[in-house]
Simulated scan of single mutants.
Amino acid sequence: MEFFIDAGDLDPAAERLRLYRFSDNRQWKVRGGWDIAVGVAVLDFECPFGVDATYRAEVFDGAGLSLGFTDYATVTLDVGSVWVHNPLVPAEGIELGAAALLDDSGARATRRPIVGSVVYTEGSMLGRWIGSGRRGVVDYSLGFAVESLDLADRFQGMLGDYNTRQVGVLCVRTPPPVRIPRTFFTSVPDPTEVSVDVQWGGQRTDIVFTATEVDPPFVGLVTPLLTYDDLDAAYSTYDERDAAYATYTDMDRDYSLAGLAG
């Protein structure tokens, strides 16, 4: 989901933006859209499926003073598949299909405990609840049917391998009516891969783990989809590249070149 505000629609003093999304009855900071320059497009890889997502940006001048907020813009992504990605490398996310969730995912039970205890003070007949509020989803049994070995390898790669360390957090997006947040950040402490028919020459594996909802990594951290290396790979000279686009913004939004540099 791309979000772009033309500089001509903003106060002339505007220099930077902070982009927010309202979804799942929560306010989110949009990854890659935090303290960005005016005229920069943002790709929201965390936009939920099947529910309204409402965006607006707070605008700042060069001194860091707020100039207020833009108007709201609401979108609904009509996606029936399950998508999973590493929030720091969203372009390498995978689509697992509409039937990817295993039948026993969640075991039909979603827990969001309220942490605290009942305390009985001296002389009191009734207890007093002392607590710190409600937590996110905990100990949710999550399982995916992965229909190819390539997808299984890519899934494992999102969690790191022998050469590359990753954060151990995934963003899982499911369509309704699955009873977890539509944008669900979960720790993956012990991913278990179960071969279903690989031993007989098939491709199907199941990946299962116990999911606990966590805060996402800092929203200012993200690997860009389109890089200058991609642009350099597409055009042999700077003059040729400059001639292909009316503005630098158009160039920065040519996602068809993403990944061209390998």
Rank of each mutant, 00 (worst) to 15 (best):
D139M: 15
A145H: 12
L149C: 14
P181I: 00
D161W: 01
L149R: 13
D139S: 15
V119C: 04
L149E: 11
R179W: 05
R128S: 15
G123Y: 03
W129T: 10
G127N: 09
R173V: 01
G133Q: 12
L126G: 13
T121V: 14
L126S: 12
A145Y: 05
E122R: 10
V119K: 08
V172M: 01
M158V: 04
R154D: 00
V137K: 00
W129F: 15
G143H: 08
P175N: 01
G168P: 00
P176K: 04
L142M: 11
I180T: 06
P177F: 03
F155H: 03
D150G: 06
Q166V: 10
V167D: 11
S148T: 10
F155C: 06
G157T: 11
R128L: 13
G168Y: 00
P176Y: 03
P176M: 00
T164K: 09
L126V: 14
F144K: 01
E122T: 15
S132H: 14
S132E: 07
D139R: 14
M158P: 04
V172A: 02
Y162H: 10
V172H: 00
R128K: 12
R128M: 07
V169M: 03
Q166P: 05
Q166C: 15
V172E: 04
V169P: 01
I180K: 02
M158K: 02
Y140T: 08
D153W: 07
N163I: 10
P175Y: 05
L149A: 06
D153E: 09
E122K: 11
S117G: 15
V138K: 15
R134N: 11
L159G: 04
Y162E: 15
D161I: 04
T164C: 03
S148E: 03
V178A: 07
P175S: 04
L126H: 15
S117M: 07
R128Q: 15
D153P: 09
S117T: 12
C171N: 03
R179D: 13
R128G: 10
R134S: 12
A152E: 04
G131F: 07
Q156P: 06
G157Y: 09
S132F: 13
R134C: 12
T174A: 04
R165C: 05
E147R: 10
V146T: 00
D139E: 14
S132R: 12
W129R: 11
L126P: 07
S148G: 03
R165F: 11
T174Q: 06
P181L: 00
T164W: 07
R154V: 09
C171P: 02
D150Y: 06
I130P: 05
G133V: 05
G157R: 12
P175G: 03
P175Q: 02
L170I: 04
C171A: 05
S148R: 04
V119M: 05
V138R: 14
V137I: 07
T174L: 03
